[in-house]
Computed example of a mutant assay.
Amino acid sequence: MTHTTSQQNAAALRAALETPDASHRLQAALSAGTRPDPEFIDVLVARCAVEPDFFVRDMLTWALVRQDRAPTPRRSFRGSHPTRPRRAARPCTPCRRSPTPPSGAPSPRR
């Protein structure tokens, strides 16, 4: 498949994934996984981020898994890091044990 044809197929996939009918989006994701193409990766990742239907998201994930292993993780995680820094974690505080009962008081049973 030539690069131009791949780009055209990716554009067609993008258009199919933007239709309002979930069954058409599901079919498009199934098709993308059945015939993997490196040009599909960015389209699939972008759609996974906004797809409202669970079953379509599941099929998009499957289609991503079916793509070539080399570029997929690098492209998938590109946008997964937050743009603002996270707050530092609070230091762990030790667990507090219940106070020792006064002498002569019965100890609780465990």
Score class of each variant (00 low, 15 high):
residue 100 T to H: 11
residue 93 T to E: 07
residue 102 P to L: 00
residue 101 P to Q: 04
residue 107 S to G: 06
residue 104 G to K: 02
residue 98 S to D: 08
residue 102 P to T: 01
residue 95 C to N: 08
residue 104 G to Q: 05
residue 102 P to Q: 04
residue 90 R to W: 12
residue 99 P to L: 06
residue 88 A to Y: 07
residue 110 R to A: 05
residue 93 T to F: 07
residue 82 P to M: 11
residue 91 P to C: 02
residue 96 R to P: 04
residue 107 S to R: 07
residue 91 P to D: 02
residue 106 P to I: 01
residue 110 R to K: 13
residue 85 P to G: 10
residue 100 T to W: 04
residue 89 A to K: 13
residue 87 R to C: 06
residue 85 P to K: 12
residue 83 T to R: 15
residue 82 P to Q: 06
residue 82 P to R: 14
residue 109 R to F: 00
residue 84 R to E: 13
residue 97 R to C: 08
residue 95 C to W: 07
residue 89 A to L: 11
residue 83 T to P: 04
residue 87 R to A: 11
residue 86 R to S: 13
residue 109 R to H: 09
residue 81 H to N: 13
residue 109 R to W: 04
residue 81 H to V: 09
residue 100 T to V: 08
residue 109 R to P: 05
residue 104 G to L: 04
residue 88 A to E: 11
residue 98 S to C: 07
residue 86 R to L: 15
residue 93 T to V: 15
residue 83 T to N: 15
residue 98 S to T: 04
residue 101 P to V: 02
residue 107 S to F: 08
residue 107 S to V: 06
residue 105 A to F: 08
residue 83 T to E: 12
residue 88 A to S: 11
residue 93 T to W: 08
residue 85 P to W: 06
residue 108 P to M: 00
residue 88 A to C: 08
residue 109 R to I: 05
residue 86 R to D: 12
residue 81 H to W: 14
residue 87 R to W: 07
residue 105 A to I: 00
residue 88 A to T: 13
residue 94 P to L: 13
residue 88 A to M: 06
residue 106 P to M: 03
residue 110 R to Y: 04
residue 86 R to F: 11
residue 81 H to P: 03
residue 107 S to W: 04
residue 84 R to V: 10
residue 99 P to R: 13
residue 103 S to W: 07
residue 101 P to R: 02
residue 94 P to Y: 07
residue 104 G to F: 03
residue 94 P to D: 10
residue 100 T to E: 06
residue 104 G to P: 00
residue 94 P to T: 12
residue 110 R to V: 06
residue 84 R to K: 13
residue 100 T to C: 04
residue 108 P to N: 01
residue 100 T to I: 14
residue 86 R to G: 11
residue 97 R to W: 09
residue 95 C to R: 15
residue 90 R to M: 11
residue 92 C to F: 15
residue 95 C to S: 14
residue 92 C to S: 14
residue 106 P to D: 02
residue 98 S to R: 12
residue 87 R to F: 03
residue 90 R to G: 07
residue 83 T to H: 14
residue 85 P to M: 05
residue 105 A to W: 04
residue 108 P to G: 01
residue 106 P to Y: 00
residue 82 P to A: 14
residue 95 C to T: 15
residue 98 S to L: 12
residue 94 P to K: 14
residue 83 T to K: 13
residue 107 S to P: 01
